[in-house]
Every structure is written in C-alpha cells, then in structure tokens.
Amino acid sequence: MGWFRTARANGSICSIVTEPSRLNDRQLVSRCLGGDPVAERALYDTHVERIYRLMHRMAGDADLAADFTQDTFIRAFDRLAQYRGESSLATWLHTIAVSVALNGMRKVKRLHGRVESVDGVEGSPHLVVPPTGFTGDLKARLHAAINSLSEKLRPVFVMHDIEGYTHEEIAGSLSIPVGTSKARLFDARARLRLALAAVAGDHIA
C-alpha cells in the first residue's frame, strides 16, 4: 500500500504532534493510516498484552501464541482502513485474533491428524493431551475438561472465566449476541461441573 511505503520514507513525520497514547481509537487509526510508525507501535503496545494472553490460553503453546498474535497484527494493519469505529479498536482486534486462533488451531490439528467437528457440541481435542491417571488432581481434570470443550464453548469460557472479558466484549469479538455468550458460558460451566463430578462427589450434582 502506498501510504505504508510513504510511512517508511517519511519516518515519524506526524508523530510529534500528540503522544499516540493519548489518542482515541479513531485518531490512532488515522495516524497509522497516515504512515506514522510511532502510532503503529503505540497501537501494538496498547493491545498486544491482552491478545497474546488470550492466544496463549487458547493455544496452550508459547510459539503458537506468538504466531497467532503476530498474524493478528499483520492482518489488522493490512485492514486498518476498513476499521470504521463502530466498535472499539480492542473489540475489532479481538475479532481478528479469535478468528486467527481458531483457524490456526484447526490447521495445527489437521497437521496432527486429528479429526474434529468444528460445530460439534461434544468436545474437540486440544493440542495438549489431557493427562490421564490424575483422577485425584482437580486441576489436571479441570484443564483436561476445558480442553475437551467445543470450539464454541471454550473461547467463551476462557475469555470470561479466565481472562475476565465481559459478555459484551466476548459478543463483539465472536460476532454473537450477548445472550448467546451467556448461554455458552452456562453450558461450558455445566460441562466442567459434570466432568469434575467424579472428583468432587455428590456435592456437585
């Protein structure tokens, strides 16, 4: 894109007027589109931590998480002109990130020769092999149970119960209604409870 070439040619011409960290989303995007490398880095710095954490939670692997995060920002910069400010920049970035992560996981799983149903309610095997012989270990059982959640349920559970996203943020990132996000979280929790029933005994039921 021409303006990116211009950006490199002109360096940080327009970065000196206002600190990028003080800009709102649209101003930051406008500066990035104008080829301001400081604004581009500011956009990255603002959002990379949260996106990387989510990618790591979903992938369970540092290298994969880094790959997904990089791919997310590369795509985001490529498509930045399409950002209309209708949602927050964070939500827009997370939409890309979740899509990148789910597609990436599918590819990796295909490479590993694992067949799964994307829409299946019954769980999809995670990259990390669930530990066996740990019936007494609640954590291990829980992690295995989260891994076995479907692609619809696991992102919602990870985002809400582990990373602390709101249902509004999840709905925006996954392009689903807020009610659907709540229903999926309820479903995911129910499945985890069931999976832990053997450990926790009758109190769970």
């Binding site: 990255y44 931590e49 992690h143």
Partner: peptide, 14 residues
Amino acid sequence: DYNAPGEVPRDAMW
C-alpha cells in the same frame, strides 16, 4: 493456571 501465559515477547513479535 489453565495455559497460563509467561512473559509477552513484545519486541520479538513486533
């Protein structure tokens, strides 16, 4: 503790 991330490799990724 589920898939807990370590330090973010911020500069390497950038």
